Computed example of a mutant assay.
Amino acid sequence: MNHCDIPCKESLEAMRAPSGAAASTPEIERLSQLLTQAPLFNGLSAVEVARIAKGVREIKVPKGEILFHRGDACTGFHLILSGQIKLAFTSADGNEKVVEILRPGQTFGEAVMFMDKPYVVMAQALTEAQLLHIGKQIFFDELAVDPLFCRKIIAGLSQRLHRLMADVESYSLRSGRDRIIGYLLREEEIRADDTPPEGRVSIRLPTSKGTIASRLNLTQEHFSRILHELTNNGLIEVEGRTIHIPDIARLRDSLG
């Protein structure tokens, strides 16, 4: 087989270009604009984004709605435009273990889509949310012609694997106290756009304390007890779901 036997990106795009141009509609343009809000699609041309937009549908879900259950078939993956989504395992007796709390710009469902397996977790909206569902086949078609896009997907999956490994390390080697302090510091970094904050700061917890406790592999009682201890030590002040940190440098230095 020589190189002419292998379809290259230019030839595949040429074969698909006429139908792609004719199919452009105001709805495709609107969905393309929504797709470009996500870092995953940065660097793609308008034509490439428009091709993907043909396999996209917008989903608006109220707080508490379940997007899918464990065992449901996976037909694509989701991109969060606004709101928060919880991924969790649920036992037969109703106990729940939160795996991830996802925010705008993040995606989920790629791994099971690539494996052609059903979902292994359930997904639920923690707040009112707006998402895009990107269909599996249109996505695979784009991967076939764009190596850079492939690398972006692999990088995203690798980052998620790295986070999960960090979670295992934290659950195994770090105390509950250090897990909570680490979580608060990460929340502040996100809020401050990765600029190291100084002095007094306030953090609004993105969801309920019970959900965060499950995410940190703690019971809600243990979570509350640690917050109480940190309050008694003058490291934090709790006001509902708002955590005030009088001196974030001191909290950072208190990590074990």
Rank of each mutant, 00 (worst) to 15 (best):
M1R: 08
N2I: 08
I6F: 09
P7I: 10
E10M: 14
E10N: 15
S11G: 15
L12E: 07
L12A: 12
L12N: 08
P18K: 13
S19R: 15
A21R: 14
P26H: 13
I28R: 14
T36L: 12
A38T: 02
L44Y: 01
S45R: 04
I52A: 01
A53E: 00
E58A: 01
P62Q: 04
P62Y: 00
G64K: 09
F68E: 01
G71R: 05
A73L: 13
C74R: 03
T75K: 11
G76M: 02
F77P: 00
F77C: 02
L79S: 03
G83I: 03
Q84N: 12
K86M: 08
K86R: 06
L87D: 03
S91D: 08
A92R: 14
E96A: 01
E100D: 12
I101G: 02
I101Y: 02
I101N: 03
R103D: 12
Y119W: 15
M122S: 15
A125E: 03
A125N: 06
T127S: 12
E128F: 03
H133L: 10
Q137V: 11
D141F: 03
D141Y: 02
L143S: 07
A144C: 13
P147E: 06
P147C: 09
G156N: 12
H162T: 11
M165Y: 10
A166S: 09
D167L: 12
S170Q: 08
S170P: 05
R174P: 03
G176W: 07
R177G: 08
R179F: 05
I180Q: 08
G182R: 08
Y183N: 11
Y183H: 15
E187V: 15
E198Y: 01
G199L: 03
I203Q: 00
K209G: 12
G210P: 02
G210C: 07
I212P: 06
S214Q: 07
R215T: 07
R215I: 08
Q220F: 10
H222N: 14
E229S: 14
L230F: 12
G240W: 06
R241Q: 13
H244L: 14
I245F: 04
D247P: 05
R250C: 09
R252W: 06
G256W: 10
G256V: 11
